[in-house]
Amino acid sequence: MKDVLTENAVTSHTTKISARKVQVFYGTNHAIKDVDVEILDKTVTAFIGPSGCGKSTFLRCLNRMNDTIPSCRVEGSITLDGENIYDKRVDPVQLRAKVGMVFQKPNPFPKSIYDNVAYGPKIHGLTRNKAELDGIVEKSLRRAALWNEVKDRLQTPGTGLSGGQQQRLCIARAVATNPEVLLMDEPCSALDPIATAQVEELIDELRANFSVVIVTHSMQQAARVSQRTAFFHLGHLVEYGETGQIFTNPRDPRTESYITGRIG
């Protein structure tokens, strides 16, 4: 079943998000310089690059999370399904419902595990009754590979989980709102190999319906889960293309030295 979906997904080449000449400034610090990217529908795109190169910053541009940072200024155009998301008519709230995000640092709400996952569905009115909500919560927790660990303690606080469990809780929370695009900022940084494998499986599964952007510091992970890879360096998008090509035959010497472990 999964293989079939995967096969189907690879054939899709419609552009979901398209960024043109994006510049991001934090005050006077020019964090993102002239980035052009096409993110395809039903595809996993990996952002790689050394720490501080602007991966998180660019990711946050895609659902306008940078709006919450007062010093941050975004220029250029980013379109989602052909519509400029920085247009005045676009409501960032609606946008973020469509473009979900898992943050680099786990940030569970000080609520119960159940309420953490049910938060999005409740806000967007995705369910008609408690049973449906229960269903969504269970399904999301299962997809995030957390269900077995927490099924007996759904009413205990989400902040009481371990770091890796919190990270999966945040993934479940994001998945529960059914976004069209899921932005994941280092979702496996605190996970053991088993949980990592489960999350990667989830990403692969999500690809059937969504497009997923994942920031990762693990080359193996990028190679395993993504179809396309973008390499950022010092705020520039150095190289962007098919994952296979980036890892086996990079065009830019900087990409090659990063992948082989010489810079970063």
Binding site: V93, F103, F109, P110, Y119, I123, H124
Partner: peptide, 17 residues
């Protein structure tokens, strides 16, 4: 912490929610 607000806004909640 701002990260809690970000988490909520990132799920498509309005500022007042």
């Amino acid at each position: 912490p701002q990260s809690l607000r970000d988490g909520s806004l990132g799920l498509g909640a309005t500022p007042s929610e």
